[in-house]
């Protein structure tokens, strides 16, 4: 059995040795088309990460009216902290708001001085949300109920920005799946074609092997191996090329490379479309034993 498997692998190598040049070109072709997919994945991965970070920061800032008393605001904060989806609330007094303003925007600090002592920033309540409440609909709903409360002047949250980003990542994810499918299909067809050519080129060997009693799998393994190798090497090559591109671009476009799980996904997609291609190629190439 071991001998048989070893011999089958040798047959596969014999297959490839006769056409090493075109084999390498096929792998390069597969690599280049897989690169498009890899880049799609990287963009979607990075935007996804941005979205996730944004969602972490999603909170609601509730500006209170100037004439609200300290006790009223604390009461309001208590009520809000009891609402569904709220993780914690933090009351920001006008003094604290001013301190934060001065620290965050030192160049604009003069503005406050210019406006004089009678001007002060409004007090506010900062709401941080429970993780599952960090979507645009839920934030919107919560914001609406808070804005109806007494003493609430204005409410600010990322309603403009968030839905757009969520949708962009949504669309991108769909595009990635589509690109993956198209790629798997085209890789299968490319491999099917090269395997069919290989079978034709080796028709005599295929016939003689089956006539001298080689098991069916022995005849097929070399061709299956060729497809598997093309797919795996092609997708691995695309990852290498993409690493190079990613490295060159990283100073101007800061981003992260794909995580291990996604790299595995690319390799598995390559290997399985290669194997599927072989199978299609053999189906149309190897004659049925009865004909």
């Amino acid at each position: 059995m071991i001998h048989l498997l070893k011999n089958a692998i040798n047959e596969g190598l014999l297959n490839i040795r006769g056409k090493l040049g075109s084999f390498l070109i096929t792998i390069l072709m597969v690599s280049l088309s897989f690169m498009v997919f890899d880049i799609f994945l990287i963009i979607s991965w990075n935007l996804g990460t941005v979205l996730k970070n944004e969602q972490e920061n999603v909170g609601i800032e509730v500006f209170l009216s100037d004439n609200i008393t300290e006790i009223e605001s604390v009461n309001l904060a208590d009520i809000i902290s009891g609402m569904e989806g709220v993780r914690s609330v933090y009351f920001v007094s006008p003094e604290e708001a001013e301190a934060v303003f001065r620290a965050d925007l030192p160049e604009q600090a003069d503005l406050l001085t210019l406006l004089g002592p009678q001007f002060h920033l409004p007090p506010s309540i900062q709401i941080s949300l429970q993780p599952d409440y960090r979507t645009s609909e839920k934030v919107g709903g919560l914001a609406r109920s808070v804005s109806g409360m007494d003493g609430v002047e204005d409410i600010v949250y990322g309603k403009e920005y968030l839905p757009g980003l969520t949708r962009a990542v949504d669309i991108l994810e769909k595009l990635v799946v589509l690109a993956g499918l198209v790629l798997a299909l085209s890789l299968s067809l490319v491999v099917a074609n090269t395997v069919r050519l290989a079978v034709t080129r080796r028709a005599l060997a295929v016939q003689i092997m089956s006539i001298v009693g080689a098991p069916g799998w022995f005849v097929r393994v070399p061709f299956l191996g060729e497809g598997l190798l093309t797919g795996t090497a092609g997708s691995a090559g695309s990852l290498l090329l993409t690493v190079a591109v990613s490295w060159m671009l990283s100073p101007s476009v800061p981003h992260e490379f794909l995580p291990g799980k996604w790299i595995m996904l690319v390799l598995i997609l390559g290997a399985s479309s290669g194997a599927a291609g072989s199978w299609i190629g053999m189906k149309s190439g190897i004659p049925k034993p009865r004909s």
Binding site: H3, N7, L204, I208, V212, G213
Partner: peptide, 24 residues
């Protein structure tokens, strides 16, 4: 004849044994 052109005489004759798992 249908000998396999890329193999030596030895390997052509050995083929039926190679595809049935006989030891080297």
């Amino acid at each position: 004849f249908r000998l396999l052109p890329e193999r030596t005489v030895f390997d052509n004759v050995a083929l039926p044994l190679q595809v049935t798992g006989t030891s080297t």
